[in-house]
């Protein structure tokens, strides 16, 4: 982190991709094929990528290229046909709680309050009492700006607030890797904009246990705004066609000329 740690916790670390070359997640030669009426349909072909310490990685590509599937392979939810995923050198063979996920559609249980939804994320922690879980959950809700909404049910929350609960549930787990599957695409533009502005410093800061964030997105501006690295997949079957560092200084302004250059550059890979 170097000098970045000296700054206040809330301001985003300046500079891209913190040059430290410490791979947190390594994806090696992933192949995946589906069986479709006896034929094997390739979905991902020889995908390799790395996510380094304090890096915000965006996975993108045209619809159906397998980017969400790749995210689930990293999460240990889907087994690849061949290849492997390593987390700090350790193979990921199944779901684990130090790698956790924020979902596109929030996936909150409608019969639990926001506090209980966040605490539900900790249900694997047999060592914690229910009271302790609630204290952690309350902290996580405060952290995402939902203090005072502990006893509200998801049906009474707006989309943006629901996603904040979803993020709080992930943060409460103190994960080292955070995976986000199109976290802003179910939100309206204004809400998404506001949440996007907060998310980077919320996830990547000296106090956060999160070492790396991998986000699936098809929104080019969003990627240029948030990501330190963009990995572009080809149309189905997905292959890596570009893997580049977005070395824009933070905070990033959409109006800056360099920002637009990056947007155009990414579009050229997607078109």
């Amino acid at each position: 982190m170097g000098g970045g740690a000296a700054g206040s916790g809330t301001s985003p670390p300046s500079g891209p991709a913190q040059s430290s070359k410490d791979p947190i997640i390594v994806v090696q030669n992933i192949n995946l094929s589906f069986k479709l009426e006896k034929n094997a349909m390739p979905a991902l072909i020889d995908v390799s990528l790395s996510a380094y310490r304090n890096e915000f990685v965006a996975l993108t590509g045209p619809s159906g290229c397998g980017k969400s599937t790749l995210l689930r392979i990293i999460a240990g939810l889907i087994k690849p046909t061949s290849g492997n995923v390593r987390f700090l050198g350790d193979p990921v063979v199944g779901p684990r709680t130090d790698i956790t996920m924020v979902f596109q559609n929030f996936v909150l249980l409608p019969w639990k309050t926001s506090l209980d939804n966040v605490a539900f994320g900790l249900s694997f922690r047999k060592d914690l009492s229910d009271e302790k879980k609630k204290v952690i959950a309350k902290d996580a809700l405060d952290h995402v700006g939902l203090g005072g909404f502990e006893n509200v049910y998801p049906s009474e929350l707006s989309g943006g607030m629901k996603q904040r609960v979803g993020i709080a549930r992930a943060l409460a787990l103190q994960p080292q890797v955070l995976l986000m599957d199109e976290p802003f695409s179910s939100l309206d533009d204004l809400t998404a904009e506001r949440l996007r502005k907060e998310i980077y410093s919320l996830l990547i800061n000296p106090e956060s246990p999160i070492q790396t964030v991998i986000m699936v997105s098809h929104n080019v501006e969003e990627i240029v705004e948030l990501a330190d690295r963009a990995v572009v997949l080809s149309p189905r079957p997905g292959k890596v066609v570009a893997n580049m560092l977005i070395d824009l200084p933070r905070p990033r302004s959409r109006k800056a000329a360099e920002f637009q250059e990056w947007v155009d550059k990414l579009y050229s890979y997607l078109a």
Binding site: G76, L77, P95, R96, Q104, V107, F124
Partner: peptide
């Protein structure tokens, strides 16, 4: 995705 949540939260 509810099943995925259940699995990923162990």
């Amino acid at each position: 995705d509810l099943w995925e949540l259940k699995r990923s939260l162990l």
